[in-house]
Simulated assay, not measured.
Amino acid sequence: MIGRFLSLEGGEGAGKSTQARAMADALAERGVHAIVTREPGGSEGAEAIRALLMHGDVRRWSPHVEALLFAAARADHVEKVIRPAIGAGTWVICDRYLDSTRAYQGVASGVDDAAILALHGFGSKGLLPDRTFLLDLPTGEGARRAGARDGAGADRFAARGADFHDAVARAFDGFATAEPDRFRRIDASAAPEQVTAALLDALSDLLP
């Protein structure tokens, strides 16, 4: 079996973690072994960097430093987890990947997209998902869901203002429009089981 690499993208509260697990369960029912991982994180080294990125004051790191840290975490994740799994015929479902860096540190924070892609080319040898699912959700609803989930424990990125998250949403929309072969848009405002069904339908052409 050919290993596949899938990523789930979208703003805060869109249900990426929930749907990653649901997709893995649905694929298992079809005889496809899939692992669920996340960014930043997914490997021992990347999880250590995650702790630096996600916690502390919003201004702890500049956008440029964040981009470098994300690229380093991703390089370790790709080297230690993602490429070996794909090579072994396993499907990889990643909760966020490169496009989140392009949206959060790039469009919303001012880091040049070409610089982010250059870091990705060096650190992760340019690896892109076979398919990226954009979970579309209005930013207001995403903020409500994230607030109910996190309470007072929001991370450095979820805690940022509405203008920032609106810019992130516009960035994801632009990426999906520019790369229709890789991206599939999924309405994340539906019931969770309906979102899972839509994800599987958008994946049907890759299934064995």
Rank of each mutant, 00 (worst) to 15 (best):
Q105K: 03
Q105L: 05
Q105G: 04
G106I: 00
G106L: 01
G106K: 00
V107A: 12
V107R: 04
A108N: 07
A108W: 01
A108S: 12
A108Q: 05
S109Q: 09
S109D: 07
G110F: 10
V111R: 00
D112S: 15
D113R: 03
D113H: 02
D113Y: 03
A114H: 14
A114P: 10
L117I: 11
L117F: 09
L117N: 10
A118M: 13
L119V: 09
H120F: 10
G121D: 15
G121K: 15
F122M: 14
G123D: 06
S124L: 10
S124R: 12
K125I: 06
L127C: 11
L127K: 08
L128Y: 04
P129F: 04
R131C: 13
T132E: 10
T132Q: 09
F133Q: 00
F133G: 00
L134Q: 00
L134A: 03
L135M: 02
D136S: 02
L137V: 06
P138E: 03
T139V: 13
T139C: 07
G140C: 05
G140R: 08
G142W: 01
A143D: 13
A143V: 12
A143K: 07
R144G: 08
R145I: 05
R145V: 07
G147E: 15
G147A: 15
A148R: 15
A148P: 13
R149M: 08
R149I: 04
D150E: 13
